[in-house]
Design a binder for these strands. Structure first.
Lengths: 232, 232
DNA sequence: GGTCAATGGCTCGCAGACATACCTTTGGAG
DNA sequence: CTCCAAAGGTATGTCTGCGAGCCATTGACC
C-alpha cells in the first residue's frame, strides 16, 4: 500500500458541517469581492438551491454574517441581504501551519490558469472583462486592494473556460488571503503589483502563454516571499 | 457583482451525503491503486477517524463495496477488509458533460506538480519511491496499467511536498479516469506512455523544472487528444 | 390607493448521521 | 491450551439538517 497518498485520499470527507461551509462560502464571495459592498446577495431561496443546502441553513449562515456586521437584510419585495459598505477587519489569526501547502498549490493553479487563458482565443466580452478588472485593481485604494486583486485573478481563472479550475483558484485564494491579511500592505508593493498585473494581462491578451506564466509566477513569488518573511 | 465567478463560489457545498462521499473515497483508493488488490484497508475505526465520519457510515460504505465485489471482510484479530484480486469493470458511463473542464484542470495541476517536484531537493527515499513507481508502471500489464499509472502520477504530486496539491491531483485523476475507462488502451499507447514517463521522472530527478513540465505536458496532451477523439 | 409578487422570518416533523456502548470472532503469544 | 488484543458486527438514543409550508413586509405597478 502506498503510504503517503493515503493522507490525501483518507482526509476528512467534509471540511465542516453544512452551516460552517455555508458561512465560509458567503464570506469568500464577500472577501474576494465577488459581491461588492452595497450589492445584494442572491435570495435565500436561490442560495439554498445553488449551495445544495436547506434554506434554514442558509438563514443561519446569514444571521452569523449579520452578527459580525458583514451584511444587513431587508424584508419585502426588492429587499434582500446586502453587503455592508464598511466591512469588519479580518478574523484574528488562524493556523499558519501549512503556509508551504497553500503557496505551492496557489502557484501551480494560478500560473497554470494564466498560461491556459493565454492559450485560448478569448471573445470580446472576456477581453473587456479582463481589462475592466485590471483597471479596477490599478485604481483601487489600499483598503479595497485585496478584493479588487482577487477579482482580477478570478477573472483570469474564468478566462480558462474551466469552472473546476475557477473554483480551485477561488478556494486557494481564500486560503492565501487568510495569510496575507496578517501582513502589512504598502504603497510600493501595490505599485509593483499593478505593474505586474499589466504584464500578465497584456501577455494573456496577446496570446503568449509562456510570457503569461512567467509574469504570473513572478507576481506570486513576490507576495510569497513577503509572506514567508513575515510569518517565520 | 461579478457574474461568472459566482458559479464557482455558489456551487453545492457538498458533493453528496456522507455515505456517498465515503464510498467515493474508498473507490478512489482502490481504483487509483493506493490500496492494491490483496491488501487490507485501514480498520473501520481508523477510517472513521481519518475520514471524519461515523463508523456506521464507514460500514455502510464498505457494505456497498462488498456488494459490488470490490472488497471482502474477515472478522477477528488480523482480519479486516481486503481488496479483491479481481476487480469489477468500471461503472457504465457517466456524464461526459465537462470533458474540457476535467482535462484543463488536470493539465494545470499535473504539469505544475511536475515542475514543482523538479524544483525541490528530493530526499533519497523520495527518489527511490519515484523510481519504484516508474518501474512498476513500465512492467505492468494492460489490465493493471491505469492503476500503476495513477500511482506514479500520485507519487509525483507527493514529491511536491504539498498535501493540498496531492489531494487535488488525486481528485482530478479520478475524474479523468472515469473518462479514460471508456476508451481502449492499446499496446502502442502504453509503450509511448512508458517512454514519456521515463522522461518526466528523469527530468524531475535531474532537477530540471522546465523539462519536467514540458515532458508532462506532452504526456497529458497525448491522452487528452485521444479522449477528445473518442468522445466527440 | 389597492394589488401582488418577491423577499425575509418562522415552525414542525422526518430522515440521516453521529457517538457510544457492547457483542462476536479470530489467531498469535505465552 | 488459554488468554486477549484487535478486528468486524450490532443496537440505541441524540442531534443536525432538510423539506415544506405558512406568515409578515415591502415597494413597483396599475
Amino acid at each position: 500500500m502506498v503510504e503517503h497518498a493515503q493522507e490525501a485520499l483518507f482526509r476528512p470527507v467534509r471540511a465542516g458541517n453544512a452551516f460552517e461551509e455555508t458561512v465560509e462560502r458567503l464570506m469568500q464571495s464577500i472577501r474576494l469581492g465577488v459581491v461588492a459592498p452595497g450589492e445584494r446577495l442572491p435570495s435565500e431561496r436561490e442560495l439554498a438551491t445553488r449551495l445544495g443546502v436547506s434554506r434554514v441553513t442558509v438563514r443561519e449562515a446569514i444571521r452569523s454574517l449579520q452578527e459580525n456586521h458583514y451584511v444587513e437584510s431587508r424584508r419585502g419585495r426588492y429587499g434582500g441581504t446586502f453587503v455592508n459598505e464598511v466591512l469588519p477587519k479580518s478574523a484574528p489569526a488562524k493556523d499558519f501551519g501549512d503556509v508551504h501547502d497553500v503557496l505551492t498549490l496557489r502557484r501551480v493553479l494560478e500560473t497554470g490558469a494564466a498560461e491556459t487563458a493565454a492559450g485560448r482565443s478569448l471573445g470580446p466580452a472576456e477581453r473587456r472583462g479582463l481589462r475592466a478588472r485590471l483597471e479596477e485593481a490599478s485604481t483601487s485604494t489600499l483598503a479595497e486592494y485585496r478584493r479588487k486583486d482577487s477579482r482580477l485573478h478570478l477573472a483570469i481563472a474564468e478566462a480558462t473556460g474551466s469552472a473546476a479550475l475557477t473554483a480551485a483558484v477561488a478556494e486557494s485564494r481564500m486560503r492565501a488571503n487568510e495569510l496575507l491579511d496578517h501582513i502589512p500592505l504598502l504603497e510600493p508593493n501595490l505599485a509593483h503589483s499593478n505593474a505586474q498585473h499589466e504584464r500578465i494581462i497584456a501577455s494573456i491578451l496577446d496570446g503568449d502563454p509562456v510570457a503569461a506564466r512567467q509574469a504570473m509566477a513572478e507576481h506570486l513569488d513576490g507576495t510569497a516571499s513577503l509572506l514567508r518573511g513575515f510569518l517565520v
